[in-house]
Amino acid sequence: MILLDGIPISHWGLQIQKEHDHPAVSDLRSRTMAIPGMDGEWDFGSESGPKPFNFPLGFIEYDMYEKQRRLNEFVAFLFDHYGKPREMKLSFEYEPDKYYFVKLSNGFTPRRIFGFAFFDLPLIAYKPNKRFIVPSDKIVMDSDIPIMSDLLWDTGFSNRKITGPQSFEIINNGWIVIPFSFRMEGSGNDVVFKANGKTMTFQSFINKTYEVTENYTVKVDGVTNLTSTNGVFLELFPGVNKITVEGSNLDLTISESLTYQYK
């Protein structure tokens, strides 16, 4: 079974055929250059392209008016109020703790047979990595998370009071390097964060709230302001990461909300 925005497709009376495609890895874009006098090509590395999905769906309905009503309802779900394909969360019954952001990638035409309707639903994830169903600050012992999830359960405790230079550890439970997204409240002079060979600095501030997001933006008291830092964003590698905070007159509360990612 597949779910769209947490809704099983059976909600629309649809069923997925037993055989369907779920790409393990999206197509790769290799960047190479042929250099005269050198055998082969120079490899500049590869990047993951979008991940396409194509689901063969169908339903049984002998009332032709009810059949059309169901199709209309499902089509309306796939689009926003402007008539544009909207982004949805796609998840699978056999992997309920992860999801993709997808949208409709092409049109489809139902094949109508008396009592039946069949069509292939084409979806695409332009961000091909899977994401964990909840952010890290929601992972605590009573969380409604599938038991098979490979997580360290102390991940969600993150409100740290910083009153002097110190280091602490943050766990990235995913397989992919992610930006260190965090919220910092309070005051400090010449505040510096260090992790995995990178340094992020902040100007001196009093009673401010900083939000460093996974989209590589910085907000100060709710207003985007990249000039308040040196523009270097820290990265968290899979596993345990050491974060060092330096500065003077520190009176900070730091909390993170991480979205783990997987291939």
Rank of each mutant, 00 (worst) to 15 (best):
L3V: 15
L4W: 02
L4M: 06
G6R: 04
G6L: 00
P8L: 09
I9Y: 08
S10W: 01
H11G: 15
W12T: 15
W12V: 15
G13Y: 00
L14R: 14
Q15Y: 12
Q17N: 15
H20T: 15
V25T: 11
D27I: 14
S30T: 09
R31Q: 07
A34N: 06
G40H: 08
F44V: 12
G45R: 04
G49I: 12
P50D: 04
K51E: 09
N54A: 10
N54Y: 06
F55E: 11
L57E: 01
F59L: 08
E61I: 07
Y62E: 11
E66C: 11
E66L: 12
N72L: 12
F74R: 08
F74N: 07
V75H: 11
V75G: 10
A76G: 10
H81E: 08
R86A: 12
M88D: 03
M88P: 14
M88R: 11
K89F: 05
L90Q: 08
S91K: 09
F92H: 08
Y94I: 13
Y94E: 13
Y94D: 15
D97T: 03
K98I: 01
Y99S: 05
Y99W: 00
Y100F: 05
V102G: 15
K103T: 10
G107C: 03
G107R: 03
F108Q: 13
F116E: 14
F119N: 11
F119V: 10
L123P: 00
I124D: 01
I124G: 06
P128F: 08
K130M: 14
F132G: 08
I133A: 11
V134A: 04
V134M: 08
M141I: 10
M141T: 15
M141L: 13
S143H: 04
S143A: 08
I145H: 14
S149I: 12
L151R: 06
W153Y: 15
N159Y: 03
R160G: 14
K161S: 13
G164H: 09
I170M: 00
I171L: 05
I176G: 13
V177F: 03
V177M: 13
P179H: 04
F180N: 00
F180D: 01
R183E: 06
E185Q: 15
E185M: 15
G186E: 00
S187I: 05
S187A: 07
D190F: 02
A195S: 08
A195C: 07
A195I: 02
S204W: 02
I206A: 14
T209F: 00
T213Y: 01
T213V: 03
E214W: 06
N215S: 13
Y216P: 14
T217W: 03
T217P: 08
T217K: 11
V218E: 07
V223D: 12
N225Y: 06
S228W: 01
N230P: 03
N241Q: 00
K242I: 02
K242N: 05
T244W: 01
V245D: 03
E246W: 02
G247C: 02
G247N: 01
N249M: 10
L250G: 09
D251A: 13
I254W: 00
I254T: 02
S255M: 06
E256I: 00
S257D: 04
L258M: 13
Y260W: 10
Q261E: 09
Y262R: 11
